[in-house]
Design a binder for these strands. Structure first.
Length: 305
DNA sequence: TGCCAGGCGGGGT
DNA sequence: ACCCCGCATGGC
């Protein structure tokens, strides 16, 4: 399927917004090549819209909109792009709180979490269940690569995740092939619920599904809806703070970061390159709490995969 | 090889 | 409220 060029526009970015870092984080090579960011904005049956974004000046992004359809509401696409890139969110309060945190005090300024649609966010979240960063992202990589939908944007290929309908048609085996293991049936369950309740908020239907606990729910909502007030505490985050003498991690994050606590997990993986817990603890002991970006890390997935 | 890893739910105490 | 186990894979 080929998307047609629609139009270009210029987007102003604020002071303290780092486009390169923001585009780099947790991204695959078919979305980011170090310069151009290709970002899916709409993905329906026969209506796919994708923007190609590139920084052309200090505070200016050039955006090219592509779509399978001629009848497109550009304003809607632009609003979504701004939301996905986090261009209008003010993280200054969060960054100030980081200065007082022993693990996040050297967090890179100007990096924002990219948001995406709820289905993608859910797949990212469940891929991390009981798995290392590498294993989780390898599952997702295979899901894109082997069962995703390739589309042509200009003359470059972008891969989109299989939609709920696609996965149900293919069956659970497809997920097993990608390494999802026991998570496969949970994904299928969510896919079914999403199709059944088209109009319903994805957040609500995630709640009642067996296999989705506070971590998967919280991470999904942090990514898709920027609900930073939700705690996202796993063994990794817990272990890291415990290793520096903070006993009640839940309480600490709530009191130190309040409505920003959900972002802590995401940024922690950035500064520690998402290394497995024991290695991450060693790094903290050596006070190496800035991203190194050697090998496969959240900021380098696009270079490797 | 066997054991652990960004979870979770069920069953035990 | 807690503790413990199995769950399916991949990586070492």
């Amino acid at each position: 399927m080929k998307l047609q060029y629609l139009k270009s526009s210029i987007l102003e970015i604020p002071e303290n917004y780092n486009f390169h870092l923001t585009a780099s984080a947790y991204n695959f090579s078919w979305f980011f090549n170090g310069k151009k960011l290709k970002i899916p904005l709409k993905y329906e049956e026969d209506n796919i819209s994708i923007a190609i974004v590139e920084q052309i000046e200090d505070k200016k992004l050039k955006v090219d909109y592509y779509s399978t359809s001629r009848d497109v509401n550009i304003q809607e696409l632009e609003d979504r792009l701004i939301y996905y890139l986090g261009i209008n969110e003010d993280l200054s309060e969060f960054y100030n709180l980081c200065k007082n945190d022993p693990l996040l005090k050297e967090v890179p300024i100007g990096l924002h979490m990219r948001s995406c649609d709820p289905w993608t966010a859910f797949l990212i979240a469940i891929s991390q269940q009981n798995a290392s960063f590498r294993q989780g992202w390898y599952m997702l990589y295979r899901l894109y690569k082997y069962y995703g939908k390739q589309v042509l944007v200009g003359n470059e290929i972008v891969i989109l995740l299989p939609k709920p309908e696609d996965l149900i048609r293919h069956g659970e085996k497809v997920l097993k092939d990608c390494g999802y293991g026991y998570r496969s049936s949970i994904v299928i369950e969510v896919a079914k619920k999403i199709i059944e309740s088209k109009d319903q908020d994805t957040r609500r239907l995630l709640k009642g599904i067996k296999g989705i606990g506070p971590y998967t729910y919280g991470l999904s909502c942090v990514i898709a809806y920027r609900m930073y007030e939700l705690p996202v505490i796993d063994r990794w985050v817990k272990g890291l703070y415990e290793s520096i003498g903070i006993k009640d991690v839940d309480k600490y994050l709530k009191s130190a970061f309040g409505k920003w606590q959900g972002l802590v997990t995401w940024f922690l993986t950035i500064v520690l390159d998402a290394e497995p817990l024991s290695k991450a603890i060693e790094r903290v002991k050596r006070n190496e709490i800035k991203p190194k970006m050697t090998g496969l890390t959240p900021l380098t997935i696009w270079k490797i995969w």
